[in-house]
Write a protein that binds this DNA or RNA. Structure first.
Length: 399
DNA sequence: TCTGGGGTCCTAGGACCC
DNA sequence: TCTGGGGTCCTAGGACCC
């Protein structure tokens, strides 16, 4: 989907069309501004001048989506809002409304499923679709079906998307970016050399900042640069799995199927504080937030019908370093109190001297609540899994 | 006043088992 | 003065993606 969150917002606020708009981060300021908007008016009547601006924002948020006009200013996803404000202070800033985006997400995926039943969910705004068995799916190399999907989604939701059609997921993903927004691009196997090899290595799904930097150190910038190395060289320098994978990818090879069903592995909740908190000085506040996160994860588990037996925490310190701890218990749980208890044990095993910026709670090793073996869930001897909590000085009785 | 939140997968070492 | 070879599970960190 093209600039998905922003596009959904523009459906509500059509008066912002063509303007630099960003969706992002910490809510409070934006919520206040929206609340103060003149009442009686419908959303579409709100004068542009009444919307909050990036320059008025104070806080720690990042941009999730920027409209294309905003991108003209150099603003992009994941950029800190404070930095974006320097690039384009007059850009309009809207708060994220996940419920709304999820609703639109369901609608566009439903449209696709009615046309092509083999669809892999890749998050709120992206999917893979297998055209192979769809009637007419091969006409004009898939372009006809892609057009139908675009048209149907636009009709049902008012939203545009960009589609890449290719022999596999790897190339299709890259192709989908060739013609944004509202574009279609069909890439054949024979296009590898002219269309894929010139691309920056970073465009490959799976090559991130670290791998890219390492490639750079070898003087390699493009996918073609990778393809030019032999397999053994890549394996020697990037490891057995990564090296072999890079070789395959650079030659456009990818055999991964379109996966239509999957089970969640973990569920988590985390939050970044408005200001850094200290385990001792801000103990009460931190404790309340921690408990709240445990309750939210529990709600999520229960609403979706899952239980889990690995409970974990995540801290991000003021220096941005991350620490995680987890503990596997001998039964499956989905209630806030149990999660809170085990998460509290995890907290006692992690250094708490530095100020904290973020705290998170995670439940993993999930199983469907209705598919658990009946009777007592205890393992063979209910041995304490993992080590027991070791208390560290300042943290001993905090939580 | 840099840098969100929710995920998956991989690696690597240690415990433990046969 | 030597100590295999599998396997699984647990834990911590990290890369990456949307």
């Amino acid at each position: 989907m093209d600039a998905f969150y922003a596009s959904v917002e523009l459906l509500r606020y059509p008066q912002l069309k063509g303007m630099p708009v960003v969706i992002g981060g910490g809510r409070r300021k934006v919520d206040e501004a929206i609340r103060d908007l003149p009442d009686g008016a419908t959303l579409a009547d709100i004068p542009v001048a009444a919307f909050p601006r990036l320059k008025d924002y104070v806080g720690r948020g990042v941009i999730t989506t920027a409209t294309y006009p905003a991108r003209q200013f150099g603003i992009g996803s994941a950029m800190g809002l404070m930095k974006a404000a320097k690039l384009c202070p007059q850009a309009i800033l809207l708060p994220v409304d996940f419920d709304q985006y999820r609703a639109f997400s369901r609608r566009f995926k439903q449209i696709i499923l009615e046309i092509a039943p083999l669809m892999e969910d890749r998050g709120v705004d992206e999917v893979y679709i297998d055209f192979t068995g769809v009637p007419g799916g091969q006409r004009e190399g898939g372009r006809v079906l892609a057009r139908l999907i675009q048209k149907s989604i636009l009709q049902a939701t008012g939203l545009t998307c960009s589609i890449g059609v290719a022999p596999n997921k790897l190339i299709a993903k890259m192709a989908s970016e060739f013609n944004k927004p509202n574009g279609i691009s069909v890439v054949y196997e024979s296009d590898l050399e002219p269309l894929i090899w010139p691309l920056p290595a970073r465009k490959v799904n799976g090559i991130g900042p670290k791998a890219d930097a390492k490639l750079e150190r070898f003087g390699m910038r493009t996918v073609g640069d990778i393809a030019a190395k032999d397999r053994q060289w890549l394996i020697a320098n990037f490891g057995k799995a990564t090296g072999a994978w890079m070789h395959e990818v650079s030659w456009g090879r990818d055999e991964r199927p379109v996966v239509t069903e999957s089970e969640p592995v973990s569920m988590s909740r985390e939050t970044t504080f408005e200001r850094d908190l200290h385990a001792v000085r801000d103990r009460a506040e931190l404790g309340a937030i921690f408990t709240h996160l445990c309750e939210k994860v529990a709600e999520d588990l229960q609403r979706k019908g899952y239980v889990g037996k690995t409970i974990g925490i995540k801290l991000r310190y003021d220096d941005f370093k991350i620490a995680t701890r987890d503990q596997t218990i001998d039964r499956f749980v989905d209630d806030g109190a149990s999660i809170r208890r085990v998460a509290g044990l995890c907290l006692k095993r992690v250094p708490l001297e530095r100020p904290l910026r973020l705290i998170g709670v995670r439940v993993g090793a999930l199983a469907r609540a209705n598919e658990l073996p009946t009777g007592p869930q205890a393992g063979p001897l209910a041995l304490p899994a993992g080590r027991t909590a070791e208390r560290t000085d300042s943290t001993a009785s905090l939580f």
